[in-house]
């Protein structure tokens, strides 16, 4: 299996390590029902047969997290984007300073 890293190009899957499902979103800890929502977020995963979006880390290359679209039945990969390009926007930059990381 080869993964099309947006920075490095097509690379063998052995250069990457796998995290899993890219769809869960961290719940609001202040919202009502947060405990149940966090249980779902931390522990419960779908196991789809077909199109899937998942996180891969390009450990032996650019060391970036990628969001990869893969068909779990065929391993056909239809795309990959840098996580930094699809992640939630960073907090506003304080006047005259860099964003805290």
């Amino acid at each position: 299996m080869r993964i099309p890293c947006p920075f490095c190009g097509s690379r063998d899957a052995h250069e990457f390590s796998y995290l899993g499902d890219a769809t869960p979103r961290r719940p609001d800890p202040a919202a009502p029902g947060a405990e149940a929502a966090f249980f779902d977020y931390v522990y419960l995963r779908d196991n789809p047969a077909g199109a899937f979006e998942e996180w891969w880390y390009h450990a032996a290359g650019c060391r970036q997290w990628l969001k990869v679209a893969r068909d779990t039945r065929t391993h056909a990969i239809t795309g990959a984007v840098l996580a930094r390009d699809v992640a939630a926007p960073a907090a506003p930059t304080p006047a005259g300073g860099e964003t805290a990381r």
Binding site: C8, R11, A60
Partner: peptide, 10 residues
């Protein structure tokens, strides 16, 4: 330029 691993060596 390529950053990769050669014989498991980064």
């Amino acid at each position: 330029v390529v950053a990769s691993s050669l014989a498991h060596i980064g």
